[in-house]
Design a protein around this nucleic acid. Structure first.
Length: 724
DNA sequence: CTAGTTTGCCTTTTT
DNA sequence: GGCAAACTAG
């Protein structure tokens, strides 16, 4: 592609965007409101550097939060500058760090080919440490201890530093576990997500010439979603950009929704303070939503303390009112959503892929899945059950990890008796005790099984077989391609056979998933011919929910509000708008937390281009029992003029709205019954419909038969006919 | 040591 | 109303 000219590039940008794209040297903060074209600015800025300004693409670093965002940015840059885009460092914090650490981790005492532990691995390890250390795991729940350790790591407080933070028995325990945890990670040659960041920082700070190398290397650094950076990420950016000082951060404090993961809004709020010579550009023109949606969203977010004042505006005019329903029950809410989607699709107002349903917690997806299934509307769920976190996938990957790095005892424990090969808990704890005594890894202990006391000869024999199996697989790793090697693992270990033997409906699904994993491996090999199996594992460890999302697929999208950030849809439903659900119960205890929920609401609303629906329900089954949930406190912050209230009768509406919705729903499904209809039953004769309801097995009617009394019938199977 | 059963915990949000 | 650790019987 011929180098694209500067004028040509700038033509596509509005004046503020141009200002941002053209400020190439020195620190720059772009305060980019929702839908204001920040990715556009970022890509054009990079295109400007690579094209007209002739900066070597390998010297540009662009950091995003998800791989999906990274790929999008790379793709869009490539369209502007051509193949040069391939050598730009566009990646997430975590993959940039692991890329650096692949080269530098040995300086910190790691061996080649460290593995990455995800939070499931992390929790397993912390759990087993707590057990081993004889700590009461009821009083000191592993999750809680993990949270404390994670908090410390997010703030780069190491084990020594944490000693000063100990102030009660819980933090005392956390301190002990933290120490043991880090020690074991090192022994296992493993890093968790936070270690990727912290170890990169450590390398840079401990080895000035390494720091200098990277500082010189990256002449331009761009960070997306800066409001979501945590202290470690802040420090990393600061270190890397200190050389050339060409740092551009893009973000929106109104969209900061990750404080629970250690993100600190002060990073963006105090940027100007941090870099006194910085330039600030505000992007407030919105290219996405109607003025109605924007107006309501502005109101929601205007109530936050200490935010950077922004007022989004648009040239669009008109727009439909936001529809608001506070239904009687969660089922009604789901029915209403499905009915509306169905109507929009039949009207031709929009297509399936144009619609999204956002909820606060993954657990809420179920009722919408059920009803969409019933309506025959295709849908896809982002998150919830993650491919790479499924048991069988993790098992096979654990085999791969073990073969590449036998010291990885978390993976080893996972597979040592999977499928069942007679190496049970007792055997493993004997080995474990021995390993701890000798200061060796679990794998090394298996190699010296004969020295381990009180191990039965049967157990020793099985361990020997297991060790030989792993070793023989390890010997093959050079000869087989990655997909073939995965296949070999599945067969030689008996893993596939064990699943096949089950012969259940689920086991077929699991076999399909394993096939899918091999496909993913094959695809990886063909797109990354020079990379090894370690690179595949790394890739797999760092994928996020949203990375697997394919917007071209024609289906309604269901996802959490957190996953929705960065996306847009013509039609958006935000559901579960009740105090306790959204805002979430656990966030209602402090002003800061409520404010974060409010930002989350803002993020959700601003995803909508044309139509926005807000729904909640007075009664919702929680923990199996019906609970009353008052209308979300956020609703009163939206001026009535923006809303079209479908019904706001609250708990009282429980029945009236129910029967109205029920009959519409049943009609939709091809059952044209209404309360008061006379019906004929094969066995009981004529009766009158007295109520409509829906159970988990489908829609039901209650019919009063003279002589028989009231009967509750499942419509799908009931031999009922309407009498005119 | 395994397999089947009970209990007891849940539920934020995720790189 | 579901899943995973903990318990119990062979």
């Amino acid at each position: 592609m011929a180098a694209i000219g500067e004028k040509e590039l700038l033509r596509d940008l509005n004046p503020e965007q141009q200002e941002a794209a053209l400020h190439l040297d020195g620190p720059l903060l772009i305060l980019a409101g929702a839908g204001s074209g920040k990715t556009r600015v970022l890509t054009y800025r990079i295109a400007l550097l690579v094209g007209p300004r002739q900066v070597h693409p390998g010297r540009i670093l662009a950091i995003t939060f998800t791989n999906k965002a990274a790929e999008e940015m790379r793709g869009r840059t490539a369209r502007l500058v051509g193949p040069d885009a391939a050598s730009i460092w566009v990646s997430t914090f975590h993959s940039s760090c692991s890329r650096i650490l692949r080269m530098e981790a040995e300086r910190l005492g790691y061996r080649r080919g460290f593995v990455i532990y995800d939070d499931d691995d992390q929790l397993r390890m912390i759990s087993s440490l707590i057990k081993e250390m004889g700590i009461d795991n009821k009083k000191y729940a592993p999750r809680l201890v993990r949270a404390l350790i994670e908090d410390a790591k997010n703030e780069m407080v190491d084990v020594d530093g944490y000693r000063d933070k100990v102030h009660d028995d819980l933090t005392e325990i956390a301190y002990d576990v933290y120490g043991a945890y880090q020690k074991q990670l090192m022994r296992n040659n493993a890093m968790d997500f936070s270690d990727l960041l912290n170890n990169t920082i450590a390398v840079l700070e401990l080895f000035p010439h390494v720091l200098e190398h990277y500082q010189n290397h990256f002449s331009y650094i761009n960070v997306d979603e800066y409001q979501d950076t945590n202290p470690a990420q802040y420090r990393l950016v600061k270190l890397l950009s200190a050389g050339h000082r060409n740092l551009c951060v893009v973000g929106d404090d109104d969209q900061g929704i990750y404080s629970w993961r250690g993100a600190d809004l002060r990073n963006i709020l105090e940027f100007e303070h941090d870099y006194p010579d910085s330039k600030v550009v505000r992007l407030e023109r919105n290219y996405r939503s109607t003025p109605v949606i924007l107006g309501a969203a502005n109101h929601i977010v205007s109530l936050i303390n200490g935010r950077k004042e922004k007022k989004l505006w648009t040239e669009r005019e008109g727009g439909e009112a936001i529809k608001y329903l506070y239904a009687g029950t969660g089922n009604d809410e789901a029915s209403y959503v499905a009915l509306e989607i169905n109507r929009l699709l039949e009207d031709g107002t929009c297509g399936q892929r144009d619609v999204a349903v956002f909820y606060r917690t993954n657990a809420q997806s179920r009722s919408f899945e059920e009803i969409l299934l019933r309506f025959g509307i295709p849908y896809k769920i982002v998150g919830g059950f993650k491919f790479y976190e499924r048991r069988e996938v993790k098992d096979v990957l654990a085999y791969l990890k073990c073969i590449l790095n036998p010291d990885d005892s978390v993976s080893l424990r996972r597979i040592i008796n999977e499928p069942k090969r007679g190496i049970g808990l007792t055997t493993v704890s004997h080995l474990d005790a021995f390993a701890r005594l000798q200061g060796i890894t679990l794998w090394e202990a298996i190699g010296r099984a004969e020295e381990v006391g009180n191990l039965s000869s049967g157990a020793a024999k099985k361990l020997e077989q297991f060790r030989e199996m792993i070793e023989s697989l390890a010997n093959e790793r050079e000869t087989a391609s990655l997909p073939a090697f995965l296949h070999m693992i599945l067969e030689r270990t008996g893993y596939a056979e064990a699943i096949r033997k089950e012969g259940t409906f689920e086991s077929e699904g699991r076999l399909e998933n394993l096939q899918e994993l091999q496909n993913a491996a094959a695809e990886f090999v063909s797109t990354h011919p020079d990379e090894g199996m370690e690179a595949f594992l790394e890739r797999v460890s760092l994928v996020a929910e949203i990375d697997l999302y394919d917007e071209d697929e024609g289906a309604v999208t269901l996802m959490t509000l957190h996953n929705a950030k960065g996306l847009e849809f013509p039609v958006v439903f935000i559901v579960g708008l009740e105090d306790g659900v959204f805002p979430h119960q656990r966030s209602m205890d402090s002003r800061e937390n409520i404010e974060e929920e409010r930002r989350l609401f803002y993020v959700g609303m601003t995803r909508a281009k044309d139509l926005l629906y807000l729904t909640g329900a007075a009664y919702r089954s929680k923990f199996g029992e019906m609970k009353l949930g008052p209308e979300s406190r956020f609703m009163k912050d939206i001026p009535r003029e923006y809303l079209e209230v479908i019904s706001c009768g609250g708990p009282a509406a429980r029945d009236s709205i129910s029967s109205e919705l029920r009959s519409r729903e049943l009609e939709m499904l091809g059952y044209s019954f209404h309360v008061g209809d006379r019906v004929l039953h094969n066995k009981w004769g004529e009766g009158i419909v007295t109520a409509m309801s829906r159970s988990s097995s489908g829609p039901e009617v209650t019919v009063n038969f003279p002589g028989e009394g009231e009967r509750l019938l499942l419509l799908e199977y009931a031999p009922l006919r309407k009498v005119d």
